[in-house]
């Protein structure tokens, strides 16, 4: 968003502050024993004052009460909330507000806090009506999930006599999901991935090198000013301080300068036996790569090698070197 677009967006969302989320809503059912019993079973709450008539009668409550934490349950609209109207005009204000966020990329939603206060016990036969107001929208916040805004609603619960029985503050985060979170959720949904080699991150100074490798070319960076070759790539020439550079394509002819055989630990995505080597290229630079196409015990320092770019797994193109 440009600063101007951002301002329009902020004005739009702040227009919702102070609005009733929807007309006062009453759930389909009054307070009743069946829903209390279901809730207690699910929550593992064995307090007999919620379910045992005889116990409740003998207690200070005098009869069965609803668990206070069920406060909101009595006003929820139930399953229909999962299929809101397609007609935008019929949406409640909270959904309209969320849609403004969605339309600006804040597609993520996360409930973050909920606090409730209870003013009297609810008993079977009571009615609960929720009056919800969009109380505040925070400034932009940076969170681990992504950049977003906290929306806080305040719900006042009243009974059949209009008496206030409880209050709730509820905060949700509407956010632009981080890329990393997207990757995680994609992993969750798809089939288990076959592990691949740990790829190099691609930044400003090295992505071009890996992009060439993806195309089958192993480049060597060259200073445009003094023609000095350098590897790994760097943004400036250490000889003449020029930041102008191009590259040549390596012939991938060289010899083993040093090498190791990796035994332990073995990492998923790598094929063992595995030889890593520092290779002195004919062009004069060195490169770290793998030696393949021979037995590990046949690799020697000084051995002549010839390389080519190969696809080593589903995702990875790499230079690999063979005995010449």
């Amino acid at each position: 968003m440009t600063p101007e677009e951002k301002k329009v967006f902020m004005d739009k969302i702040h227009a919702f502050v102070g609005m009733e989320m929807a007309p006062p809503t009453k759930g389909p059912d009054d307070v009743n024993k069946a829903m209390i019993r279901h809730w207690c079973e699910v929550m593992g709450d064995a307090n007999p004052v919620y379910t045992d008539e005889a116990f409740a009668k003998a207690s200070s409550k005098g009869s069965i009460i609803a668990p206070p934490a069920m406060l909101q349950a009595w006003s929820l609209e139930g399953y229909p909330m999962h299929s809101p109207s397609k007609d935008e005009a019929l949406l409640d204000n909270q959904r309209k507000l969320h849609k403004v966020f969605d339309d600006h990329g804040y597609t993520g939603v996360l409930g973050t806090n909920c606090t409730q206060e209870y003013f009297r016990d609810l008993k079977p036969g009571d009615q609960v009506i929720a009056h919800t107001v969009i109380d505040s929208i925070s400034e932009e916040k940076a969170t681990q999930r992504g950049i977003g805004h906290f929306i806080e609603t305040v719900t006042r619960f009243t009974d059949q006599n209009g008496e206030k029985v409880g209050e709730m503050r509820f905060r949700v985060l509407k956010f632009i999901p981080n890329e990393s979170n997207k990757v995680e959720s994609a992993k969750d949904e798809g089939k288990p991935e076959v592990p691949t080699r740990i790829a190099s991150p691609r930044g400003h100074d090295n992505a071009w090198w890996w992009q060439q490798v993806d195309k089958g070319v192993v480049p060597i960076q060259r200073c445009k000013n003094c023609q000095t070759l350098r590897h790994p790539p760097r943004s400036m020439c250490g000889e003449c301080q020029s930041i102008e550079w191009d590259f040549i394509e390596s012939k991938l002819e060289g010899e083993v300068f040093s090498f190791v055989e990796l035994h332990y630990p073995k990492f998923p995505g790598y094929q063992y036996p595995l030889i890593c080597a520092v290779i002195s290229l004919g062009e004069g630079t060195r490169i770290v790569s793998n030696i393949v196409g021979c037995k590990p015990e046949d690799v020697k320092i000084g051995m002549k090698v010839k390389g080519k770019v190969e696809q080593v797994d589903e995702k990875t193109m790499l230079p690999q070197f063979y005995p010449a």
Partner: peptide
Amino acid sequence: RFSSGVSGAITTADALHWGWYTPYGLL
């Protein structure tokens, strides 16, 4: 951006440095 908190991938010079070795198994 510091305003975005500590989330997200950060491509540091250090991470790029290890990238010349990790794909080959030098870990």
